[in-house]
Design a protein around this nucleic acid. Structure first.
Lengths: 347, 347
DNA sequence: TTGTAAGCGTTATCAA
DNA sequence: TTGATAACGCTTACAA
């Protein structure tokens, strides 16, 4: 065995042909004799020839790689989005480089630099909850690297965007709670500078106002992160209020889970004493006791569409098509952690 | 703005130097004048020069990329392992390419080919549950691509391995169930050709035998996949037996969750009528009602160690060091879904 | 139809 | 200390 992989030259010299001829044959170039073409393809097959992507990349000034930046992958939410992205990009000519910012602006910055250095052909990004400034993405765009933003918006950044109508999801959830007879509805909100957090909060506020439920500021608490433990303290604060809420709309299912946990520990019955609604519809939420009412988001489709848009954008890189803005509708899933809708029941 | 990125040549021509000189300056080669070096570094900084990894890769015949193949990432288990891998590889000179086999042998094969074509410098792999043959990994090794296997073993493949002592985890769990007074202990096992599945089954069998609990074959059911829905039917089969079990040891927390679900629906009290123990200690298992007893695995450390071993192996690529085999100890976490250990209580 | 040669960005070798 | 040149594997004018 000679060391290293089989190259065009190897095939060429074995067949006493020029490398360019071999290249043409393998790329189905028209100007080539049928016989030589066949012979070349046969030998290439036998030798298991695989074109060197680095040589190609150097030549074409592109890496055939797409970067994906997400805050984390331990939640079902982002991992399902990534699965959707993979399922679209996988069969294409592109490779995916997945990067985790760990909800840190600094790490996100480092990742963008790394991906830029790698000459990725485009990136898909959901910014960290600490990111307030989007110049690092603009720098990519200035280097002709298309950027597609998904789930978490980057306000002010001109780019393709695939988002979820968080406002609507929150509005649906809160309006449902009101209709079911809850009057003291609290909100466990997320980190404040996230677009998703803001929109869900606004949906909450508007649903209250529209239904003439007075707003109580002490019914709004913000969690510092999205994992279970981040929900404990804020929930306690709510439930220890003199006039404690009879419903909690939580920023996601993890937080809703810890809210249920705390409520149960305090001896409250769910949903009789307090209704709890989450967001995301993580698969295991169905298996909580009581099963968690939550807002479903089309995560897999979101990942797929984002990837498709990026691929298109890469293909038509210099056409000045307008940026797309796609917004998916989430849906309230009512389960057992919230009371039944009393409006539907005759009284 | 001239198009394309800044290259060595650009810097060289601006400074009226040869590209090789610029290269030496930027790589801190000793044979270079202090002044030229400074000037070059300054200009490189100003122009935001970033070496082209494809050119480097072509020259050095390596991609500076590590491939990671996992069956899926929507479970906390693999996503936490990946987080550990990222945290080790991220700060290194290497990039990571994460690939999902979706528990399919064919897709795994395709991914291996893809990574091989990319000239990855090494791969980390946890085989799909459908993989019985490991020749595709051997082919990589023959191409001098080191392979590190993690979590799921590839029996017969000579490679570095980072595993978990699944046997011990299962043994602990089942012995605990026996000590707590359960006598009819069932097992919801995983897909049969996975090493983890086999070892957990063996731990179950041995714990029964060692404690003189008679084995009943109809108490062993195998699930087809690892998600919640895969647990429903097998659980029903168990609970509909004439002499139904009073404990279930499930292959993972998802399956345990659906077992709890089914049991509750059938009117059984947990753990009074039936104890249930899972495997993995997914974060939300703490929030089930009752909180799920399970076997914790050091997932994050497992990811980190696997990555470290691969980096070392890549560094000393031609040293014929023996393959390493690291085995982590899992730990039983007793919560409320299983009865208390009656041995500790005086009678 | 096939071959020759240049070039993508970088580094290593050799010469100056 | 610096420069010229070749090479990594491939494609593409251009020439034959």
């Amino acid at each position: 065995m000679k060391k290293g992989r089989v190259t065009l030259k190897d095939i060429a010299s074995k067949l006493k042909l020029a490398p360019s001829t071999v290249s043409r044959a393998l790329n189905n170039h028209p100007a080539i004799g049928e016989d030589t073409k066949k012979a070349i393809k046969k030998l290439a097959e036998e030798l298991d020839y695989q074109p060197n992507p680095m040589a190609l990349g150097l030549l074409q000034k592109k890496s055939n790689t797409i970067g994906v930046i997400v805050p984390e992958i331990t939640s079902h939410f982002f991992s399902a989005i990534i699965t959707g992205i993979q399922d679209v990009i996988g069969p294409s000519e592109y490779n995916i480089m997945i990067c985790l910012s760990n909800e840190s602006y600094e790490e996100e910055l480092t990742l963008v630099k790394k991906l830029s250095k790698m000459r990725v052909d485009g990136i898909l990004v959901s910014p960290s909850s600490a990111t307030k400034d989007f110049d690092h993405f603009r720098r990519l765009q200035n280097n002709d690297v298309p950027v597609v933003v998904f789930d978490r918006d980057c306000p002010g950044l001109e780019a393709d965007k695939v988002l979820v109508d968080d406002y609507s999801g929150a509005y649906q959830a809160v309006e449902y709670l009101i209709r079911s007879g809850c009057t003291k509805i609290a909100h466990l909100g997320g980190p404040l500078n996230l677009s998703t957090t803001k929109h869900r909060l606004q949906g909450y506020l508007d649903a209250l106002e529209k239904n003439k439920v007075p707003l109580r500021k002490d019914y709004i608490q913000h969690v510092k992160g999205f994992s279970h433990k981040d929900g404990i303290k804020p929930t306690k604060k709510l439930l220890e209020l003199e006039d404690a809420p009879d419903a909690i709309f939580a920023i996601n299912d993890n937080i809703a889970a810890s809210a249920m946990h705390v409520a149960k520990k305090m001896g409250l019955a769910i949903p009789d004493d307090i209704s709890i609604v989450g967001f995301d519809d993580e698969p295991h939420s169905l298996y909580f006791s009581p099963a968690l009412s939550t807002v479903w988001q089309p995560v897999y489709s979101l990942g797929m569409l984002s990837a498709r848009i990026l691929l298109q954008r890469i293909k038509n890189t210099n056409s000045n098509e307008e940026f797309r803005m796609e917004v998916f509708k989430p849906e309230l899933v009512v389960r057992a952690s919230s009371r039944e809708d009393s409006v539907g029941i005759s009284d």
